[in-house]
């Protein structure tokens, strides 16, 4: 019993640590003071103000546009590539296997500046498109790597069995491979999405004039201090993601229960 208490305490402490600054941030979104320094009184005005701040809303929309499209594209390319790298032999395969880790380890600022130079070299016009392209560039490795962990010898065995029974390549991929690697695809996509939502440095260098994202907007505010309407927006995003995650958990719990029966 006592042992159990300490075990639960450990879990709770870790979660307190993870959520403490976020709770503070939510509390401060109700702060009547303009500056994020001292709590002076309760107000809801920042939530109202939020909807009048067109720049903030625009950057918010841009952020999700970038995050969703870059996640979709990098998940598709990443998944295909992971399978291709696993299954086929082709020129440069060894080199590619080594190179795909580079975006994971290279400092963001170096990647940002070098990507900008590559775009300039290719005469690409800087815009939201170049931000999306850059986010795809740093997300794909995360997807490839996390899909790979779910590709095992068994997949190949099943695959061959299905092929022996006359299934087409397309059917094999869709009905055999995809279901087994799905957990990897989902975690890769989640990772890509969160990385894209939070990126400042690479977005800064590869953004075109006027294509602001939320992190860039926030970054441009740190001199005068982040205003509470940004806190309000973040709180709203948090609560929405929280609800989505919770419903996911409930759905999955039902599944587990059904399987148990």
């Amino acid at each position: 019993m006592k042992n159990n208490f300490f075990k639960n305490l450990l879990l709770i402490l870790v979660f307190i640590f993870l959520f403490l600054p976020i709770i503070v941030l939510i509390i401060y979104s109700f702060n009547s003071s303009q500056m994020n320094i001292l709590f002076e009184g309760f107000t809801l005005k920042w939530y109202k103000e939020l909807f009048n701040n067109t720049d903030l809303i625009e950057s918010f929309i841009n952020t999700f546009l970038v995050a969703i499209s870059s996640t979709a594209i990098s998940t598709i390319i990443g998944t295909i590539s992971a399978y291709g790298l696993y299954k086929y032999d082709f020129p440069f395969k060894k080199i590619i296997n080594g190179l795909i880790y580079i975006p994971i380890v290279i400092p963001e600022i170096v990647l940002g500046i070098s990507l900008l130079s590559v775009y300039t070299l290719m005469k690409l016009e800087l815009s939201l498109m170049t931000i999306i392209l850059s986010h795809i560039a740093f997300s794909i490795p995360f997807v490839i790597v996390s899909v790979r962990t779910t590709l095992t010898k068994e997949t190949i065995t099943y695959e061959e069995a299905a092929r022996d029974l006359g299934a087409s390549n397309y059917r094999v991929f869709k009905d055999i491979v995809l279901p087994t690697i799905m957990p990897g695809v989902i975690s890769g996509a989640t990772l890509a999405f969160t990385l894209s939502l939070d990126d400042v440095v690479i977005s800064y260098f590869t953004a075109g004039p006027g294509s602001n994202t939320l992190p860039l907007y926030i970054y441009s505010m740190i001199k005068t201090g982040i205003t509470p309407d940004v806190n309000a927006l973040t709180s709203i995003i948090l609560i929405i993601t929280f609800i989505i995650l919770l419903s996911l958990v409930i759905i999955q719990s039902r599944k587990i229960r059904k399987e148990a029966i």
Binding site: L116, T120, K123, L126, F205, A207, P209, G210, Y219
Partner: peptide, 18 residues
């Protein structure tokens, strides 16, 4: 409208852009 927080950031951005 875009922003920067140092002269060198500006220089990097202008000199590497088209």
């Amino acid at each position: 409208y875009g922003t920067y927080s140092s002269n060198e950031e500006l220089l990097a951005k202008i000199s590497s852009s088209n």
